[in-house]
């Protein structure tokens, strides 16, 4: 076991990211954005909507290479990255199980996924097509796909947006259950402070555009102690530290 904080698995150092519109207008989305996520840590990128959180994630996922700066992804283990996007992005023409298995490297395609499907409550849905799932179930399938790959780092982009609060809450608990069973470095983008306080070890607070880090908020308390009383205390101390955010 690596001592926590002994290595820096995810290091982000983006100097600048500029969007150029078709009309030639340039918008600076990110500037001097740098932070670290320790190995095995669950971190949240929290910021107002439109501040560049998703842009940051797309850069880290390797989907946007037009930026200046650098980042270093965690090494070791499977060396793979996994992502849960804002939309589930399941292939509609493949079943739930095929969607999950296609994300695996060829050598692991046939591995046993019963436990993972059971935990996520998808055991009876493996043969269904995504169109036959509710949005909540489709998001569970997206989570299953991400965790099945046993990634070295997991990125989540507001995975519970556009769900009703009860479903979102149930999915947050499911996420924690699966993540605790297979802890991995995780970075989740959200604008929901409560969600961030409930899930993360550390919250990276971003400023308005161009995004840069306003500060860090560490939640050192184990997750099972975070009942509603503790949550409101956390909320209060967060708001003291970052007045005006969220």
């Amino acid at each position: 076991m690596q001592p926590v904080g002994g290595v820096v698995p995810l290091r982000v150092d983006i100097a600048e990211k500029i969007f150029r519109s078709a009309q030639g207008v340039s918008i600076k989305a990110l500037q001097d954005l740098s932070f670290e996520v320790r190995q095995g840590e669950f971190a949240c990128l929290l910021g107002p909507s439109g501040c560049g959180k998703t842009t940051t994630l797309r850069i880290l996922l390797g989907l946007d290479k037009d930026f200046s700066g650098s980042f270093q992804l965690p090494e070791g283990g499977s060396d793979r990255i996994a992502a849960v996007f804002q939309e589930p992005v399941l292939l509609p023409w493949r079943t739930v199980e095929q969607n999950v298995r296609l994300a695996l490297p060829k050598s692991l395609r046939t591995k046993n996924l019963d436990g993972l499907f059971d935990t996520l409550g998808l055991a009876g849905m493996r043969a269904l097509y995504p169109a036959e799932l509710s949005l909540g179930l489709a998001r569970r399938a997206a989570l299953a796909r991400a965790f099945a790959t046993e990634p070295a780092v997991l990125f989540l982009d507001e995975p519970f947006a556009s769900l009703d609060e009860r479903t979102a809450e149930r999915l947050r608990h499911l996420l924690l259950t699966v993540w605790s069973a297979r802890p991995t470095t995780a970075l989740m983008v959200t604008h929901n402070l409560r969600e961030a306080l409930m899930l993360s070890d550390r919250i990276i607070v971003l400023a308005q555009r161009p995004a840069h880090v306003l500060g860090m908020f560490d939640v050192r308390l184990p997750r099972h102690y975070r009942n509603s009383q503790v949550m409101s205390d956390l909320l209060r101390s967060f708001q003291q530290k970052f007045p005006g955010v969220a």
Partner: peptide, 9 residues
């Protein structure tokens, strides 16, 4: 988005 998913995985 499908191509991006395929790239990530």
């Amino acid at each position: 988005s499908y191509a991006e998913m395929a790239a990530v995985y």
